[in-house]
Amino acid sequence: MHVYDTITDALTDLDSRGYNLDFNLTAESLACKSVNLFLKPEEFEIEEVYRFEGMTDPADSSVVYAISSNAGNLKGVLVDGYGVYAENISPELLNKLKIHHE
């Protein structure tokens, strides 16, 4: 596992290691709009997780997930705030993220 000082450092290194897609959360899946891809919780794995604390405001905390999928042998990243997604996504997706978040 790597150690990064900033989210930018993490994203730059992950990109250099092949995590090239940008994922966003939808209600039921991870979405990558650039390639019109939607991954359900059972279709991806979380390979690495990095947490970043806000310098002055804990509400500014973020987490970076390094995601891989055998569906097309894809790799990418998901950047999200702590707990931001809890009310907006399916229980299956929430559980997959929580396992690696806590």
Rank of each mutant, 00 (worst) to 15 (best):
D80V: 12
P91Y: 02
P91I: 03
L93H: 02
E87I: 14
L21I: 09
N88V: 10
M55C: 12
H2N: 14
V63T: 09
S68G: 09
S68A: 11
I67T: 00
E48G: 03
F52Y: 11
F38Q: 14
E87L: 13
L14Y: 08
Y19Q: 01
K75L: 02
N70Y: 15
K96G: 02
E45Y: 13
P41I: 05
S69D: 07
N88R: 14
K33N: 15
V77G: 01
T8K: 12
S16C: 09
N73F: 11
N20C: 12
V63D: 04
N36A: 14
V84C: 11
T26E: 10
V64P: 06
A86F: 12
A66E: 03
S61I: 02
D9E: 06
F44R: 00
I89S: 01
K40F: 15
E102L: 09
H100F: 13
L93A: 05
G81N: 13
E43C: 05
I7L: 06
T56M: 10
E28Y: 13
C32S: 06
D22S: 13
N88M: 12
L74D: 01
N88D: 09
K96I: 04
T56N: 08
V84N: 10
T6D: 03
D5C: 09
R17E: 13
V35Y: 15
N20P: 09
T56E: 09
D22W: 07
E43T: 04
S62N: 15
N24L: 14
L11Y: 02
I7R: 04
A10S: 04
E48S: 03
M1A: 08
L30A: 01
E102M: 10
E42T: 11
H101S: 12
E48F: 05
L78S: 00
E45M: 13
D9Q: 10
R17P: 04
L94W: 06
N88W: 11
A31T: 08
L39G: 00
A59S: 15
V35A: 11
P91C: 03
H101W: 03
L30W: 01
V49Q: 03
E87S: 14
H100W: 14
